[in-house]
Design a protein around this nucleic acid. Structure first.
Lengths: 157, 157
DNA sequence: GATATAACGATGTATATACATCGTTATGAA
DNA sequence: TTCATAACGATGTATATACATCGTTATATC
């Protein structure tokens, strides 16, 4: 029997699924991000923070008071996603959100408790970051950071 | 007033929040992953799939039937997370999950509908992947893939 | 053969993330 | 001045992701 591509229902345009797993940039970056986030989250759990929350506190610490759209750019996060993500931090009193009416954006500011939490998390983040650099190797860490920054720049809207 | 570090409550061990945003590997990889996933998800929406679902179909297409713990390794996903993620695909009839009793792992197989969906998504994924490579540059794409594969290897349990 | 261990799936809870959509309002164009 | 547009936050819905925990059961140890 002649199993040419057409009779098998397989065209030359069909994907090689194994190759997809190997070269898909999206799959590979998300997989690495998951593996890494688990480590950072485990470390920061000692301060009662997730990596995402810690990052928001860092941005607030660096730029407080901070317009929410600016934070959106820093995080490359969707508008509705960020607004939701801020809720737990606000309810725990780590940040203060001043609403902006209508078309005016709101602003967030780090509270004293937020500054405390950020400081408490400092050594834990440093340990996670140091372990990451050690596992990756210093050279590769810098290389990776550069590529990720570039990727964010060319992919974010 | 002498605002030395101690009286200000600032020690030399405190983090520079701006530097944290710049060098935190976890923040930077997650941010890039978000920006990238939005593009791939938008492209694959034409086939009714998310990037994660497409990746699972690719794994099933490559290795069907596939033991769930093997898929966990491929995706570097938590056990409970993967089991939940499989549910929508199973309910839509794109994969078939054969349960494994007790300590025996379950297996998944691509259904005919799943194979159809994966094939339909082929051109969409190819377009997203091509655009990613074009935005990053071919050289950087390969470099990034290599670093991400290495990162997954050294971070995943 | 009895028992401790470990791997499995399921579930509860919480955060993360996005899109579509709605109501509000500031701003620019007619 | 009126009116269309656009940016904002809020909400509904869906997927993504993890940890703690529970009950089940195969396997290893004694």
């Amino acid at each position: 029997m002649n199993m040419n591509p057409v009779s098998r229902g397989v065209s030359a345009d069909d994907l090689d699924p194994k190759a997809v797993l190997e070269v898909c940039v999206c799959h590979n970056i998300r997989r690495a991000a998951r593996a890494m986030a688990r480590r950072y989250d485990a470390a920061l759990a000692g301060a009662g923070l997730t990596t995402g929350q810690f990052t928001i506190l860092a941005a607030a610490a660096a730029l407080s008071p901070l317009a929410i759209p600016v934070l959106r750019e820093i995080l490359a996060l969707d508008r509705t996603s960020l607004n939701r993500t801020l809720k737990p931090l606000e309810q725990r009193g780590l940040i203060e959100v001043s609403p902006g009416a209508g078309r005016r954006p709101g602003r967030i500011a780090l509270t004293d408790d937020g500054a405390l939490a950020f400081r408490d998390a400092g050594p834990l983040w440093r340990a996670a970051q140091a372990e990451a650099a050690q596992r990756l190797g210093t050279g590769r860490t810098g290389q990776l950071l550069g590529l990720l920054t570039g990727a964010t720049a060319v992919f974010h809207d």
